[in-house]
Design a protein around this nucleic acid. Structure first.
Length: 633
DNA sequence: GTTCTAGAAC
DNA sequence: GTTCTAGAAC
């Protein structure tokens, strides 16, 4: 959950950018031995792009140590001459820095660079150095550093700094040197905090750790509360990382509470590619938004806005300007959005959790009670939004008790993503891809409607000819079980169904072989199908069809992306789930399914396949994956 | 999923 | 010049 400070490092606003030509007083903050003098040397001596004056307390008194007053006066004079100033002294606490902040004005910005390197390193450096302007070296240095430590207080923007850069290691220091050294006379730097603040980060992680544990409780609690109100729709908790603590906590707790996998489950993957990469069909996704409802930041919010394109931004603007912590807003996604077109997402619900980030207004600091309360409200609001979508589409009927959580609080984005997938939430003539991907499902749910294309119908399956057959014979055996979108949904309890599908498929193989003994069949599933509802491909291996036009057509039936029905059933029996192959085979080579020779393009491959008489490869023949008139090959 | 098409590859 | 593909649009 690293996206706490999602606005950190963002581009300055246009007003900020106009602060051209302002002088800078750069207050260095660091222990003896942290590298302040080196920093000054690098910035002052090497580049000279912007005129800098180093004000060093150790040498200000005719080469000897002076006073803070002398430093202030030297700095004031330098500013009068149009120079920029680096204050080279420890400036270890607020009190020591305060007077230098008074140098700030409309023409002068006060910056801090914190050389927050490990204390051990500072001590060993200052002890080991043999000369120092302030004569601070040897054992004395160690004592001084140790004396200083308890007084150490990291600078805050609230002290009056326009910008603070934290450096935790040598790399950070080098970057900061480069930043200031390459600054031209008219350049300016964005305001705010930059780099890590180790101390605060530690506290932050503590809060996050607590919140994750707490959040998982709240998520499960809210899922349990809402699961009865979402009809045949489902809730899915998605996180990018397999190591996600919150995901595993929620998973365990949901299982413990007996929340069915058909209603709620967790999923590791990219929420912006649930369909194309994950094989899931989710019409509604939740976005951990920022309070301005703007794209950008770091984590999920940026990713979702990027994937959805400007359409989401525009649609969001029409719905709301900003969001209070604990609140959400439902935004219908225009069909022109690529997230809609590619992934079938029809709605994004922006939701804002509690803000535990001290850098932001409304921060709850360590008020876990209030934080938990707002997190609860956020999930309530999110799920209410989801239910309202389902209601508007007639998937569920409005409930009598309209319980709504409405309270105020603070904000921040929480990088785990709550995301909901619902079946058939496709409404008002939503066309194109969305109708395509729904078509098989519609046949499965209501075969009577498509009587003319249904070859066979049982309680479990429907058989049709593929609308765009990729071979002489190409059937689809579609499961009729609602909610079984694809192999990704299949688990042990579906073994019987898959066997039934296989047997029905074989029946149509036999029927076809009666008509044409020369055919060879293969039965299998696409790892990530483009159409919803689990369907078994029963396809003859000639691939003689005008509909086979693209590389992906060929490769979807002739690479490991195509999972043989027999193997799927075996793996399901052995392990309880099916391993899906999400290879991107658009650029994969094209190989003959018989002799395995490679071909440069599809037309050449097709022409080769038409005449290739080589026997099928051994692995296909040996494992009972091919079916011919001779029986199981 | 298909269709259309610009431009890359030949 | 034609063929082929990838990607956008539907």
């Amino acid at each position: 959950m690293e996206s706490m400070e999602i606005d950190r490092g963002k581009a300055p606003s246009t007003e900020e950018e106009k602060k051209e030509g302002k002088a800078i007083v750069l207050v260095l903050v660091g222990l003896p031995g942290s590298g302040k003098s080196t920093f000054c040397d690098e910035v002052v001596k090497v580049y000279r792009r912007r005129p800098w004056v180093r004000v060093c307390q150790d040498t200000i008194n005719k080469g000897k140590a002076g006073t803070k007053i002398q430093c202030l006066s030297a700095a004031t004079n330098a500013l009068k001459e149009g120079k920029n100033v680096i204050i080279d002294r420890c400036n270890i606490n607020r009190e020591q820095r305060a007077d230098f902040l008074k140098l700030g004005s409309a023409q002068t910005e006060i910056h801090a660079v914190v050389l927050n390197l490990p204390t051990k390193l500072c001590i060993s450096r200052s002890v080991e150095r043999t000369e120092h302007e302030g004569n601070l070296y040897g054992v004395k240095a160690a004592a001084v550093v140790n004396q200083m430590l308890p007084k150490k207080e990291l600078p805050k923007l609230s002290e009056g700094f326009n910008r603070i850069t934290f450096c935790e290691n040598e790399t950070d220091v080098k970057e900061a040197i480069y930043l200031y050294a390459s600054l031209g006379p008219l350049d300016s730097l964005p305001s705010g905090r930059f780099g890590h603040n180790k101390t605060d980060t530690t506290i932050q992680l503590g809060i996050m750790k607590f919140l994750k544990k707490k959040a998982s409780d709240i998520i499960v609690e809210k899922v349990e509360e809402f699961v009865s109100r979402i009809g045949r729709a489902r809730l899915i908790l998605v996180d990018l990382s397999r190591e996600s603590k919150i995901l595993s906590l929620v998973k365990a707790k949901a299982a413990h509470r007996n929340i069915g996998r058909n209603k709620f489950f967790t999923f590791v993957g990219d929420i912006t590619q649930l369909h194309s990469q994950g094989g899931l069909y989710c019409n509604v996704i939740a976005n951990a938004a920022n309070w301005r409802l703007k794209p950008g930041g770091g984590g999920v919010n940026a990713a979702i806005f990027k994937a959805a394109g400007p359409e989401l931004e525009m649609a969001t603007n029409e719905s709301a300007d900003c969001l209070r912590p604990g609140k959400s807003v439902v935004v219908p996604l225009p069909s022109s959005s690529s997230l809609f077109a590619k992934e079938g997402v029809t709605h994004v619900i922006h939701v804002l959790g509690p803000n535990m980030n001290p850098q932001r207004p409304d921060c709850l600091k360590d008020d876990y009670v209030q934080g938990s309360k707002i997190l609860r409200e956020a999930y309530s609001s999110l799920f209410e939004g989801f239910v309202s979508i389902l209601e508007s589409q007639g998937i569920v009927t409005p409930a009598k008790d309209d319980q709504k959580a409405k309270r105020e609080g603070a904000h921040v984005s929480d990088s785990n993503k709550k995301q909901k997938g619902s079946e058939q939430s496709l409404k008002h003539g939503v066309k194109h891809w969305a109708t395509w991907f729904q078509a098989l499902y519609n046949v499965a749910m209501d075969p009577a409607k498509d009587e003319n294309i249904v070859l066979e119908k049982t309680d479990d399956v429907v058989v049709i000819n593929d609308a765009f057959p990729k071979a002489q014979k190409h059937f689809l055996v579609i499961a009729r079980l609602d909610g079984l979108d694809s192999l990704a949904d299949v688990c042990k309890e579906h073994v019987t169904l898959l066997k039934t599908m296989h047997d029905v498929g074989l029946k149509w193989v036999e029927k076809s072989l009666d008509e044409n003994k020369s055919l060879t069949f293969r039965l299998g599933y696409h790892s990530v199908p483009s159409m919803k509802q689990l369907h078994l491909h029963v396809i003859s291996q000639d691939f003689d069809s005008n509909h086979l036009k693209h590389k992906k057509h060929w490769n979807s039936f002739n690479t490991r992306f195509f999972l043989d029905s027999v193997n799927v059933i075996k793996e399901l029996e052995d392990t309880g789930s099916v391993t899906l192959i999400t290879d991107d085979f658009r650029s994969m080579e094209l190989r003959c399914n018989r002799c395995r020779s490679a071909h440069p393009n599809l037309p050449r491959l097709k022409s080769h396949v038409r005449s290739c008489k080589a026997p099928f490869p051994a692995d296909l023949l040996q494992n009972g994956r091919l079916f011919t008139s001779e029986g199981n090959a």
